[in-house]
Design a protein around this nucleic acid. Structure first.
Lengths: 129, 129
DNA sequence: CCGAATCCTTTCCGATACTG
DNA sequence: CAGTATCGGAAAGGATTCGG
């Protein structure tokens, strides 16, 4: 694959979408069926109303979710994964599996790295005095 | 999978790494074997020295690449994918495949969305005058 | 209930200059 | 060659307020 062709940019774009702080959590929350806005807000720990709105807009723009307004009082808005959105779940699921399988390995590496990095900084501090 | 357990955070962490602007491009540039810093810098279009350094540090911290210094003059530093880094390529490859397969669909959706959004904004502008 | 708008803080990142 | 240090603009994102 040409690393600088339009395809590569597209792939990078998709990676950035799934790497977005809230997108995958949102898709995950929609995995088992349609949910309304306030349900999503409650089920996605720590998300602000603003970010949920923005995330859903982005997903809707990409064709991954649909937005359905029911003009009742109070108003009601439901979100649902499209077929495209559902089809994303498999490849992301495999990545998730990889992450889970290697999580302890990654965390161990991070700890080793941080210990060494801290020691190096102390070293530099001492020799500069 | 518990959506708020430590596993989920780990998965999100991995997604954010692959979604990082330069990480996957860097891993990709290392796919066929070790490369030295300046080679990477040239082969990854548009990356700054700073970001290449930071990206490589992050990947090294996660145990995805190794950094090997050869203290010659001029100095030489080689980077290479670890086994862990190589094992990441398959699941990411599948996501890349998905992205390529659905790229036109996504772009079409984006265009439709943008057209409608623009029309809505114009509408609002008119009714406010 | 849903979400747009605003404010404000934090983080990102490119450009530049400097070091071993 | 391979970094590190610093600065400033841009963007992300949380908190809050207002509106339909």
């Amino acid at each position: 694959m040409n690393p600088h062709g339009p395809q590569c940019r597209g792939v990078t774009g998709v990676l950035q979408r799934v790497g977005d702080k809230w997108s995958m959590l949102t898709i995950n929350a929609l995995a088992e069926g349609p949910r309304r806005f306030s349900e999503l807000r409650r089920s996605i720990e720590g998300i602000s109303q603003r970010m949920l709105t923005l995330t859903l807009r982005g997903l809707e723009r990409d064709g991954l979710v649909t937005r359905t307004v029911t003009p009742s009082i109070p108003p009601r808005v439901d979100y649902e994964l499209t077929k495209l959105g559902q089809s994303l779940q498999q490849p992301v699921g495999e990545l998730a599996r990889w992450a889970i399988d290697h999580l302890t390995e990654i965390q161990a590496s991070q700890q080793r790295f941080d210990v060494v990095a801290d020691a190096a900084r102390e070293e530099g501090k001492l020799s500069r005095e």
